[in-house]
């Protein structure tokens, strides 16, 4: 998504990214970025929370107007209900290490079979 935003900026369109994967967006480098520190899935506000969504989109519009140079990140003030998601997402530990290795092997085998037209 950041690559698309950069292409639009290079061609004369103003853009804002709204996202929750801060490191990926900032590593790529974009003109304007609204960062909400939520689990991946709802960067524009919690589901059914119209006031929060309205606030986040409003910040994106403000940033469109007011940014004077690239790489401007605004972190919204919203917090998720708890912090458990931070450790849970794509977690690797002793409880799932073997299952992950096995699933990866099965996936590679399936892709190899598809390539061979099996």
């Amino acid at each position: 998504m950041s690559l698309v935003a950069r292409h639009l900026e290079e061609n004369g369109l103003s853009t804002v990214i709204i996202g929750s994967a801060r490191d990926i967006v900032e590593e790529c480098g974009v003109a304007r970025f609204i960062f909400t520190d939520f689990p991946l899935g709802n960067p524009c506000g919690k589901p059914w929370d119209v006031a929060m969504q309205r606030s986040i989109v409003g910040m994106a519009l403000d940033l469109l107007e007011r940014a004077w140079m690239p790489r401007m990140t605004i972190q919204t003030q919203f917090c998720w209900d708890n912090d458990e998601w931070r450790e849970g997402f794509m977690r690797v530990d002793e409880s799932n290490r073997e299952a992950l290795a096995r699933a990866g092997e099965e996936r590679r085998q399936m892709q190899a079979d598809m390539k061979k037209g099996l």
Partner: peptide, 14 residues
């Protein structure tokens, strides 16, 4: 995306 923590039933959330 984090399917354990949330859902995408409300399009306006993304």
């Amino acid at each position: 995306w984090d399917k354990q923590s949330t859902h995408t039933d409300d399009v306006d959330s993304f």
